[in-house]
Amino acid sequence: MTWLKLVEGYMPMQMITELAVCILFFSICNYLLKKAGIGVPKFWAGILVWCFVNLFYLKYRIYPPIPFSVRAIYGTVSACGIFMWVSGSQEEWLEFKRPIINVLDGNNFFTKSIRTVLLLLLPIGLGAFAYNSLLPSFEEPIELRTVHPAPPATTKVHGKTYVLQTAQQPYRIDTDGKYDPAYSNAHIVDQSMGRLMKDVNSAEDNPWDPNAKGYIKHVREGGEIFFQNCHFCHGDNLNGRGLWAFAFNPIPANFTDAGTIAQLQETFVFWRVAKGGIGLPGEGFPWASVMPPWEQHLTVDEIWKVIMFEYWHTGYYPRTWD
């Protein structure tokens, strides 16, 4: 269903809104059908809603595909929700159960046939399930990789030990050279890519202004380092879609995603960049990341500057706890 776009930046709310509209549409249809005396029985209504949400909407509407583990969670929760709906009152519960009871209690040819078919299908289905479960699989095993594993308390880079809880970005400074996160936060670019350089015309905001100094000057320096070293994988727009990105699995981190640098302390990113994939703890699957330990290629200052550029460019603020 690619003809109906999921609008970047609004996708989470769009998904919920679409689901709400669909459910509302079904309710209205059912209401009209009931008025016409041909309402859908609750039993089938429940099954239809579940199938629509899980077998159609989440499977085919949402792109890229949702991993099975998440769809399984959603399927279970929506099944519970439908149970709560159909058994919310005793009358509704009786209405929902009626077709089941009719089939189990009925003595006509039709109900007997259904019972017989079910009786045959049930063991066959269970057998098929058991067979499939035992069948040797050649699929790669499920991975439980922790994307952002807990960092160590301290990290040693170029001979100096940094306490990640308390270390500060040395270049997050105002025009007077004082550490000032509020100042730098006020001068990041707009988050939306289309408006990247909007209103960037003063020396305080424009990294390319010859008079730029302090924070914004260091952003420019960080940008130069980024485009010399990082953009091949992390991409021109820092969205993890660089030239080489699709040679790797997993592809490099998408910094524009709210789930990456936006929720990390700057010192965490410093540790990750300095130590690279190989420096990850076991839970982070160090063998599944090709990022080099950049401490072998960059100075400490360069690492700090490139991190600052990443925050500036994506429009995110590093996580703080004050």
């Binding site: 999921l6 595909p65 709210a258």
Partner: peptide, 14 residues
């Protein structure tokens, strides 16, 4: 993971 194009899902990741 490959089909999803990264560790974060662009819709559900949020």
């Amino acid at each position: 993971l490959k089909a999803m194009g990264g560790q974060q899902h662009p819709v559900l990741g949020n």
